[in-house]
Design a protein around this nucleic acid. Sequence first.
DNA 1: GCCAAAATCATCCGAAATGATGACGACAGA
DNA 2: TCTGTCGTCATCATTTCGGATGATTTTGGC
Lengths: 146, 146
Amino acid sequence: MKRHVLIYGLVGGILITLLKWTEYRFLVIEHSLEIYGGLTAVTFAVLGIWLGLKLTRQKIVVKEVPVAAGEPFVLNERKQEDLGITRRELEVLELIAQGMSNREIAGKLYVSENTVKTHSSRVFDKLGARRRTQAVQLGKEFGLLP
Amino acid sequence: MKRHVLIYGLVGGILITLLKWTEYRFLVIEHSLEIYGGLTAVTFAVLGIWLGLKLTRQKIVVKEVPVAAGEPFVLNERKQEDLGITRRELEVLELIAQGMSNREIAGKLYVSENTVKTHSSRVFDKLGARRRTQAVQLGKEFGLLP
DNA sequence: GCCAAAATCATCCGAAATGATGACGACAGA
DNA sequence: TCTGTCGTCATCATTTCGGATGATTTTGGC
């Protein structure tokens, strides 16, 4: 960014010098003012467009996100206990991570849908999640899911 | 695009008229030429910058690249094309995988919630998913997500 | 310039999910 | 035996999602 400003300033300086020089050439000609003004306008308009484009070039901010590295997944029981997440709740979380709906999970675990809702609500609360996708994301970060 | 050119032309015309008028005001003053040239330069530079901004639409892309301690994730572009998933759709899918709601995604991408819904609906359809959690799961299996 | 694809936005409606509570039985440990 | 945790189930209100469709604008390639 600083470089752009520098270049802009430099080019501006050169142009001014140039214009200062051309000024005396055109001053004697009729309607020179219009020509001079037009030239200036066009020049700086182009320059402005170029500057605008430069400044708004897509900025790609690279953010480093740490990811659990181990291939063989081992449950982080410490974290699980810290958060007070029970076996059943973790079980439900795992099934959620697999993309199942509450109904499907209920069927798989042979319990009612309401029960699944309770478990999921609890685990969301303990994880600090507001959505199941977020719960899955956090679950992975905490080493509760592979 | 056409509208921009039109507006640009119109504003340009008005400015020229304005400058023509100011021309006679400043002509009698010493160093008027420099002032006139400077004004023109600044005006059109600003105009150019504005035009440049309009044409490029501020798109500040924040890309989060996971620097995992293992295999660096590479997008399976083949699969992406096979499924006909566009960039924007993939972008939305990534944000869904991060646990964001449609509303949050809309805010982050500077588009309406309806647009996000359209993108997600399309990507679900292309992936064969019925839920966002399932879409995330499938996305990972297909190598579209890390 | 023209055209197809992509991106944008909207509306309607039903389904799914979430939040907040309350309740009840089983069971383990103090 | 009493207490606390866990698992189970339920109701009600609200929010979020997902599906179906139609429309307009932008983009990108020819």
